[in-house]
Nucleic acid binder design. Structure first.
Lengths: 188, 188
DNA sequence: TGCTACATTTTACAAATGTTAAAAAATGAA
DNA sequence: TTCATTTTTTAACATTTGTAAAATGTAGCA
């Protein structure tokens, strides 16, 4: 198992001992496109690391769903809200393609955090990294208009543009699908 | 020092030993309103915990500044980008009132993270908590219009409304000051 | 092939927000 | 207080984005 994990960027800061500890609790599972791995209205017992495939995190509103995160191979799929507050939250996690994932029990992760310094710091860095990315997106909503945000998304996430439905990308960028269509039309 | 720290909510999960370790590196400093404690174009050597006063984090654009975070007594003032990537970033931190703050050298914090399990987990939880708050704000930008965002801000942050200039609150909410004025006018 | 469901684009119109400039109000210092 | 500065509001107009509905495109399947 640890050979497979070793290839994933997010584990590169871990030495072999720490990685083995994680790997011991790790199981490789497959799920089909459309599977909702994490439900907003439940406290889910697992977190995942994408081995292959694409996922999105979304939040349900009255009339719409907002996609606020995309995950690709190597990314951690984790409902931070349910995991920190031990309560159902606002995050759903859905697979947008048939995927294979490493699955780990959250209880095991917590135990590792409480026993193993390197893993606690690894978990800290994952959250910090995600925080910076989210903060930047929030700032970009103010600094950049929808057209700029779309163009940068195209440049920075060429894989996602190819493989993800535009309706999801529209809500990720903070506009309606109609607006996204207009942007794309004027970009030709 | 640790008696003072003990009163701060963010330290409540730490036992006395851990808190003492932190307190040993902690110095209480005072700064005047308007002081920029952390500059986006520098790698700053300290992080702070607000003892009293109010602060904002902002990012500079060509024609405007975006305020993306407010801090009040008990909050951690930290440039995550500079601290994670060890590079200048996008975050400025300015005091909006005369303030007193606990100041700690980031190098000391890093050492503590690498040596002390409880503190590493403490740092992890701070980042995770901040991540959830930021994620929610990003989602709210899509789900709620400016009027709703303003009203919720008023309800949830009554202190900030009283003490912070509206121009900063406008940019925090993701609208121009003119729009915020209109919302306030129609709310009477 | 033709049917079905779903995704995307287009259109026309409405609503929200931005821009610019100026006036009014509030703040702070001498 | 008075003056100068800054903040906030108001106004008029431009632009962007949203909404709803129809048209078109696409993929899978019987």
């Amino acid at each position: 198992m640890q050979e497979k994990l070793r290839n994933i960027e997010i584990f590169s800061s871990l030495n072999n001992d720490s990685l083995n500890l994680l790997a011991r609790h790790c199981r490789l599972v497959n799920h089909r496109k459309g599977t909702v791995l994490i439900h907003a209205d439940k406290v889910e017992p697992y977190f995942y690391i994408l081995e292959s495939g694409i996922a999105r995190a979304y939040s349900d509103g009255e009339n719409q769903q907002i996609t606020f995160w995309f995950g690709q191979a190597g990314d951690v799929l984790l409902s931070y809200n349910s995991y920190i507050n031990n309560k159902p939250g606002y995050e759903n996690l859905e697979l947008l393609e048939d995927s294979s994932l490493f699955r780990i029990k959250l209880l095991d992760l917590f135990k590792l955090y409480d026993q193993h310094l390197a893993l606690a710091n690894w978990g800290r860095k994952i959250a910090e990294r995600e925080l910076i990315a989210t903060e930047r997106r929030l700032i970009d909503r103010s600094f950049k208009d929808a057209t700029q945000r779309y163009r940068e998304f195209v440049n920075q996430q060429p894989e996602l543009i190819k493989r993800v439905a535009l309706k999801h990308i529209a809500s990720y960028l903070g506009v309606t699908q109609v607006t996204l269509s207009r942007i794309r039309a004027s970009d030709k």
